[in-house]
Design a protein around this nucleic acid. Structure first.
Lengths: 243, 243
DNA sequence: CGCCAGGTTGATTTCGCTCAAGCAATGTGG
DNA sequence: CCACATTGCTTGAGCGAAATCAACCTGGCG
């Protein structure tokens, strides 16, 4: 069976969806141009969208679901670099740098993704300089974030990095439940979380155990409950401003 | 005594110097506009050009010398993120991202640096879209490099990372001496090298000792001699493609 | 001369890794 | 429906790479 593909037919990019993304600067005609050239496809969890070292054929707008960007090392271990949520665009870095993909994209939760060929993108970049400016800004911000991550992984202990990651995930999938505690469902396997922290799954497991023993957090499967989120934030601060 | 500052007076940006940099796309009039607004200044080793968290007031073109970009952690330790050689431009990331500086710049070897205010830069970006495209590309490449560094620091052992760094430095300051061996003068302290690798100075010291004992390299102060550079390259490959 | 920063070395500890086993949930095929 | 592989996660024991702490060079430099 062939994967489900379809022209977007004015459905892919629409004013509500692109709100807050780089695409929001497009005019109605440009949106139409996008939709005429883009191809939508739904991927199941585990499917790859593109691989490291592939030529960059265009870019990928995540419409729903969750996508992970990863690199693979010599022994086959993978390191998760970042996550792409609905509204995020993938593949713009290699496109703008004029390079091949330096990381692969794999679907983590069933996702529909809109592919826009390079040529169409170039057309849009020329017709609307604002679009380029938007991606320029986003790339520059991503560079800052990447430097930050490097800095943190070499200066902070794994425990603080883990708590930090939890606090970031809170923005994506956290909910405050009636009694004031924080509740979230992590969309990642332990192995993937560990790789984002630069540690092994076993080490993460011990770390989780330790934090749980202190009563700060309760884990069960992918479900996390934090009784007192502020306490964790304090620990991050303590990790930074050491006396 | 006030630091030596001066208007560039047509001297700063000139066709020979900008060859191969992002600035090479400027027209003669634009070059003039740059020179009229830029301010040159010479810094001694150890001086700071800007600090982390400073507002970004413009960008800095390194004309000569060597500049380091670093972040400082809670206990006052610094991590060297990257080096800026003559022709490199600093501060474009925060400018383009619309953020404050997220790292500081410190002169490592006496450097003359040309400062171009934000407003003048905006003017140039508008008058010449090629310039923006150039910085876009460079930013995108830097992002790829930053991801790569993170990936390497979590997957490769310190030893391989060190050799890797040496091979990168070769391109900047390496010379092949008459008998075919490689000779270089590292413009960095041990502490700074260690911070780039994400390890402590003591660990680096032991590492150097170990590699020297194997006869691969000889260190004396900042001077490095590599009798057989290919052997080191092989080791990097071995570190990647493990059976 | 003494001081100081940069570098080295040694002893000890800590953190995270490896290897190995066990367990629960989920498929899968007979 | 059950036996059996598979996958994700956890746990334990032992190991190893770097960190830490502390002492000690060494070469400027006031």
């Amino acid at each position: 069976m062939k994967p489900m593909e379809s022209k977007c037919q004015k459905t892919c990019l629409n004013p509500q969806f692109i709100e807050g993304t780089e695409w929001s600067v497009l005019s109605p005609e440009e949106i139409q141009h996008f939709n005429e050239n883009a191809i939508c496809r739904t991927y199941e969890a585990g499917e790859a969208i593109f691989y490291e070292e592939d030529d960059c054929k265009g870019l990928y707008l995540v419409k729903s679901g969750l996508v992970g960007v990863r690199k693979v090392d010599a022994e086959g271990g993978h390191v998760l670099l970042r996550l792409a949520n609905p509204g995020d665009t993938l593949g713009y870095r290699p496109l703008l740098a004029g390079e091949k993909h330096r990381a692969g994209a794999e679907v983590l939760k069933t996702a529909t993704v809109c592919f826009l060929p390079k040529i169409a993108m170039r057309h849009l970049l020329i017709s609307n300089p604002e679009l380029g400016a938007g991606f320029l800004q986003r790339t520059a911000q991503a560079l800052g974030a990447a430097d930050d991550r490097f800095f943190k992984t070499v200066t902070l202990p794994a425990r603080i990095r883990f708590i930090h990651l939890l606090m970031i995930m809170r923005e994506r999938c956290g909910r405050i439940v009636e009694d004031g505690s924080l509740y979230m469902e992590l969309p990642l396997t332990r192995r993937d979380i560990a790789s984002m922290l630069g540690i092994r799954a076993e080490s993460l497991s011990r770390l989780v155990h330790e934090i749980e023993a202190e009563g700060l957090i309760h884990f069960s499967g992918n479900l996390v409950t934090v009784s007192n989120p502020d306490q964790l934030l304090n620990e991050i601060d303590a990790g930074l401003h050491f006396p």
